[in-house]
Amino acid sequence: MTDSSPALTRRQAQEKTTRRAVFVLSLLPLVLILFVTVALAARAWPILGQYSLWDLLGGIEWRPMRGQFGFLPFIAGTLWVTTVGVLLAVPPCLLTALYLSEYARPSVRAILKPVFDLLAALPSVVYGVWGVLVVVPFVGDVLRPFFHQHLGWIPLFASSQPTGYSILSGGIVLAVMIAPFIIAVTYEVLMTAPQDWRLGSLGLGATRWQTIRYVLFRHSLPGIIAGVVLGTSRAFGETMAVLMVVGNVPTLPTSIFDPAYPLPALIANNYGEMMSVPLYDAALLGAALLLLVIVLIFNIASTLVLQRVMGRRWV
């Protein structure tokens, strides 16, 4: 076609400009990720020059005034709280998602979905308030004495302090916070399973639960695991709600009733005063960098798995 009327060429030129603008705009997310990583790495660089990575990650002394920056208590705190939270959250969330996708009638689903959306929309400080007012007393006055009396000889359940500000409280609050997220992802994954498989299995006389175990899981298990990993990475970075209930004592915990001091809480609590102490800000930004790197790895891996499982892109 050799139409060269001025209107057409103008619109072709316009289209070309838009295409370029779109390309530049689409670089934005990638540039932001790189920028955040590089900026944090650059500010954390001084401390990596002074101490070896091993000393930082494996050190248990945190005394910024004396120049001791051991991250191990904080890494351990994060791992403990996250593990407890995820272990508590996963079984009920899986079962709830299974109920929603396999058993619930559409009308029930239509009522329940908004409820879970609501749970996801609540701000983290509200969870924190609930944690301080309900979970901490419950753990401190009910669970702790109970476990102390009956299972106190197991180190995991030993209680070293009289309050409920502990890993278990943080874990419970985290579990409730990531629940709607895990339910939503798992539900979406299950909904992409081919309906024919279900019907075929049920037609052969299998019960619904057998269908779930032997047919659905074959399709959905990788996606469900990826969803749980995604939920875990959310839990890693959760700051405020956990900070309010976990006690914030930098020790190496051995029991779920011990207090802990997770990485995000470390950053949030000390950011104001870091300027006066040498290397303190580098150490804190190093903590942020560590958090970022862990979350990036978790996120990229699980998103790639989800993309493959679902055949389409997802959260």
């Binding site: 689409s26 997310p29 990638l30 932001l32 990720i33 955040v36 900026a39 944090l40 500010r43 995604l230 990475s233 959310r234 890693f236 970075g237 959760e238 700051t239 995000p264 950053i267 949030a268 950011y271 804190l284 930004l285 942020a288 958090l291 970022l292 979350v295 990036l296 978790f298 996120n299 990229i300 998103t303 790639l304 993309q307 892109r313 997802w314 959260v315």
Partner: peptide, 23 residues
């Protein structure tokens, strides 16, 4: 690729954004 980058950005904890913004 852009969607993946956005999903990864979504997953970055807000405390990291806060620290980044402050620097």
């Amino acid at each position: 690729g852009v969607r993946l980058a956005l999903d990864v950005l979504w997953g970055i904890p807000s405390i990291v954004y806060g620290a980044f913004g402050f620097t």
